[in-house]
Write a protein that binds this DNA or RNA. Structure first.
Length: 362
RNA sequence: CGCGGGGUAGAGCAAUGGCAGCUCGCCAGGCCCAUAACCUGGAGGUUGUAGGUUCGAAUCCUACCCCCGCAA
């Protein structure tokens, strides 16, 4: 009930006929937006999502988050493999008023974008024209930006290029306090305690979290913008194309750690590449018959230290924690996972792999 | 049937047919102004499950359960 009251518009609904909206989306980001739209007058009549993909160790075909939600709520769903003439025809027959596109995954040709009376709107999780393209949220975290936002724009033939209807900024809070076991803290001398806890007390935002925040923000902004758009109260504002920047689709290889970067940069990578591909490095040891195994880095702390070690060198800190030298400073490995093994703490890992000390990660 | 690694003491790992061991943790004691350091001692195992081969199996064979990497 609370949720319904939040969207008072439902009760003030004008007697005008409801607009026919088609929603295009695939991953979690799109699902969050669809979820919010569904409890408004803008509930889509049809949902379009990318075809099922083989997922998981057994390559089982599985439905996208958007598909699952649509099925739960029994909204009509289509999954064209290609947006060709046949798919276009199907969409024309619906006679839609508006397309809403949020991380759909397939490129929509101009003929399709032109179908609805009120055009095709896109929700993009950045302050356009900054960070056009496939990975704006990752780019935001990698650049350590202090603010980001969501943009609603009218789609045209170029990627994230169309004129802007609305934009909402979001300040990035990197100050979410982690609840910590306080019993251990008072025992430490002040200076030591600050050093040991300094990096942990503040947990910076990850891509997964920012993704959710921006989706919610985008959905609210959309719900706010749509009535004005239908009433033709908004004049789309062209983007300043000179200021445009572009982001690429993230690939597995982007998660490979380059130890010649600073500890801060690697820490930003860790947060940017959540939940996929994560970050990893290669470990070669006698214990593995000199084979190279992949080592996934799950949780780290930055250690401020002057060292003259080669970047990638594994060493022990004064507190006997497992650490790796970076170009500048070092990283304490709090939680790691060796290929074929479960995630473990740096300390546990050390119990069985003491020879890791002084090896060089690549 | 997509490819591959793994399951051994509370944790992480050794042991490839012959007494199941190492590091950490845990318990007791010692040393110490003190300690997460150091020393001594101790507890803790049906080697994932079921069956088979063998004088003898963690190890070889068969089936099943569970975990993980690649791939997406």
């Amino acid at each position: 009930m609370d949720i319904l009251l939040k969207y008072g518009r439902i009760f003030n609904m004008t007697p005008k006929k409801q607009k026919k909206i088609v929603f295009f989306g695939t991953p979690e980001f799109a699902k969050i937006i669809l979820e919010k739209l569904m409890i408004t007058e803008f509930k889509p009549v049809i949902v379009v999502t990318a075809p099922d993909k083989p997922v998981g160790r057994k390559q089982i075909l599985s439905a996208s988050p958007v598909k699952q939600l649509a099925q739960e709520h029994k909204i009509k769903l289509i999954q064209p493999k290609l947006l060709n003439n046949a798919a276009g025809q199907e969409l024309i027959e619906i006679a839609p008023d508006l397309f809403i596109i949020a991380a759909y995954g397939l490129i929509l040709p101009q003929e399709i974008l032109n179908i609805p009376k009120f055009g095709s709107l896109n929700i993009h999780p950045s302050l356009l024209p900054k960070y056009r393209g496939a990975s704006p949220i990752q780019a935001t975290i990698l650049a350590n930006d202090q603010k980001t936002g969501t943009t609603i724009m009218l789609m045209d033939e170029k990627i994230d290029h169309g004129p802007i209807l609305a934009q909402q900024e979001l300040e990035i809070r990197n100050s979410k306090l982690e609840t910590r076991n306080k019993s251990k803290i008072p025992r430490l001398p002040d200076a030591l305690s600050r050093q040991a806890i300094g990096g942990q007390a503040i947990t910076k935002i990850t891509c997964t979290e920012l993704n959710i925040e921006l989706a919610i923000l985008g959905a609210d902004l959309l719900i706010d913008t749509l009535p004005k758009w239908f009433e033709k109260e908004i004049k789309p504002l062209p983007q300043d194309h000179k200021k445009a920047s572009f982001t690429r689709l993230i690939k597995k290889i982007h998660g490979k750690i380059v130890w010649r970067r600073s500890a801060e940069q690697i820490e930003q990578m860790l947060r940017a590449y959540q939940p996929w591909p994560g970050i990893y490095t290669n470990l070669t040891m006698k214990q593995f018959n000199n084979l190279t195994k992949k080592l996934k880095i799950i949780k780290i702390d930055i250690l401020e230290i002057d060292h003259n070690k080669q970047p990638g060198t594994v060493f022990l800190t004064k507190n006997k924690e497992l650490a790796v030298a970076c170009d500048k400073n070092a990283l304490i490995l709090k939680q790691i996972q060796l290929q074929g093994k479960k995630p473990t703490s740096g300390k546990s890992f050390l119990n069985g792999h003491q020879q890791i000390i002084n090896t060089i990660l690549s």
